[in-house]
Simulated scan of single mutants.
Amino acid sequence: MHTSPHENSWPVWATEPIVVVDHDPSWAAQAMEEIHFLQPLLSPFGNSGIWHIGSTAVQGLCAKPVLDLVAPIASLNSASVITRILSPYHWHYVPYELDQRPWRRFYIKVQQNKRIAHLHLVLPGEARWHEQLRFRDILQDNAYVRQAYAALKSMLAEEYRHDLDAYAAAKSDFIRKTLKDY
């Protein structure tokens, strides 16, 4: 996150340092639990499935211990209603003005003052959704790419420990090149 005059008033989980840990085999089961819980809540909004993406979805890959889930919905304008539904379950909406990614609506699940999951709501045809799935699959299927990405993530987590936006941006060249080459 960018430094802001409001940063001191942000919750602890909004500015927690980036920590990359070894793969946890329980992440897949945790993701399925979240998916099974979220599916009936999101189905009235045109959702037909929820996918586990990101590094926690790749067996053997180190990751920030935060599950990433993506779910297509019929309209991003449903975010205010979805926020009211998800908020009692510790999901926090990040306004798209803060998120700066107008192609999605973004939620963070928090437990004990730590992020435990991200939910990316997208439109069904959103190219980034398909790219996220394809990148996950490339990492799963290619040990060389997986190892190179793990080394990059570990290095960047040290360099950008307190800047999640810079960490994510620094990974984007590797992701783009991988999607182009594979």
Rank of each mutant, 00 (worst) to 15 (best):
H2Q: 15
S4W: 05
E7I: 13
W13G: 02
A14F: 15
E16M: 12
V20P: 02
V21I: 13
D22G: 10
H23D: 02
D24M: 04
D24I: 05
H36N: 14
H36M: 14
F37E: 13
P40F: 05
L41Y: 06
L41V: 12
L41G: 08
F45Y: 14
F45E: 01
N47S: 15
S48V: 13
S48F: 11
I50S: 05
W51P: 02
G54K: 04
V58N: 01
Q59G: 09
Q59A: 11
C62Y: 00
A63G: 00
V66T: 11
V66M: 02
L67E: 02
V70E: 08
A74F: 09
A74R: 14
L76K: 09
N77M: 09
N77H: 12
A79S: 15
I82P: 01
R84A: 15
L86W: 02
P88C: 03
Y89C: 09
Y89D: 10
W91F: 11
W91S: 08
Y96S: 12
Y96L: 05
Q100P: 01
R101C: 03
R104N: 10
Q112C: 14
K114V: 11
A117V: 04
A117T: 00
H118T: 11
L121C: 06
V122E: 06
P124A: 06
E126D: 14
E131D: 14
R134T: 13
R134D: 08
F135N: 01
N142H: 09
Y144T: 15
Y144V: 15
V145G: 01
S154L: 10
L156I: 04
E158W: 10
Y160R: 02
H162V: 05
L164A: 14
A168L: 04
A169C: 13
D173S: 08
I175D: 07
I175A: 06
K177F: 00
Y182S: 07
